[in-house]
């Protein structure tokens, strides 16, 4: 017994090292699961406050550009207003609200921390549980998808960026209507990969890519990017498509969180489907 203790004492440097490494690896593993641990979610409040303090100062430098982006968005939205359309045919039927049931509503948020140069990137937004944010909410910017919420504290939430090895967003090519999955290979933060488009479909450079609406996270028709190159892979039935994101992940200031009003209903259905499998 005594010699065992002596041995352990001699090796204490290695033992401390081993213990610390085991702690870190446990942290990595628990962080890799889709939902993050309670502990980190709580500490988000602390780090979130520090980061938003910093962002308060830094955001002034980008005001001009953010304003321009918002003006552009306002113009686009104004164009879609009913009042900017001229009624040509007086016999068109009216739209009743009982037919159109609101499916999504949006919560605006501010990006207080953002990374784009790592293999797995995260954003932190200054909206949390108190403002109605929940896990697995979709997050948009003015011109595309930012990511998916993965942990929420009272006033902040962290978002798995589109630039993450685990992110996969259902998308479709507008021209042909074929659906695939957008992922990111970690090389260039402006360029993503569209997979699973069969090679018999015609895909042209410059084709727009939008969300397909196959998941309950993102509504259909959000513009994601355009096709940069499309190569047929020899021996495989699928294209190798590179797409240019419309979002510049280096310049993200404002975000919109998508609140799905029918999420409970959709989840219930999905649960039923999964139980049968």
């Amino acid at each position: 017994m005594r010699s065992l203790i002596m041995f352990l004492w001699k090796q204490r440097f290695f033992l401390v090292f081993l213990i610390l490494e085991i702690i870190s690896i446990l942290l990595i593993v628990s962080n890799n699961s889709y939902q993050r641990s309670k502990f980190i979610s709580a500490s988000n409040g602390f780090t979130g406050n520090i980061l938003s303090f910093y962002d308060n100062y830094i955001s002034y430098f980008n005001l001009k550009e953010v304003n321009n982006q918002l003006v552009e968005e306002n113009v686009r939205l104004r164009n879609e207003l009913k009042s900017s359309y001229l009624k040509l045919d007086s016999t068109t039927g009216e739209v009743f609200d009982s037919i159109y049931f609101q499916h999504y509503k949006y919560i605006s948020g501010k990006v207080i921390s953002n990374s784009f140069q790592k293999r797995n990137n995260y954003l932190i937004l200054s909206k949390g549980r108190k403002q109605g944010v929940y896990n697995e909410m979709g997050v948009l910017s003015q011109n595309g998808i930012l990511g998916i919420v993965n942990s929420v504290s009272d006033n902040f939430c962290s978002v798995i960026s589109m630039l993450h090895s685990k992110t996969a967003v259902d998308a479709k090519v507008v021209r042909s209507g074929y659906t695939g999955t957008i992922t990111w290979d970690g090389k260039n933060y402006r360029i993503g990969q569209l997979e699973n488009i069969p090679s018999h479909v015609e895909v042209h450079v410059g084709d727009s890519v939008i969300t397909s609406g196959n998941s309950s996270i993102f509504p259909e028709g959000i513009l994601l990017g355009k096709v940069l190159t499309a190569k047929k892979q020899s021996g495989k039935g699928f294209y190798d498509i590179q797409i240019l994101f419309y979002v510049d992940y280096n310049k993200t200031e404002n975000a919109y969180l998508i609140y799905n009003l029918m999420k409970k209903e959709e989840d219930k259905i999905m649960e039923g489907v999964e139980n049968e499998q």
Binding site: S24, I28, S30, N31, T47, K118, Y122
Partner: peptide, 12 residues
């Protein structure tokens, strides 16, 4: 790690 969101990686 806490501030970058890459929990455990820099620690390890």
């Amino acid at each position: 790690d806490i501030f970058t969101g890459s929990l455990g990686m820099n620690a390890a």
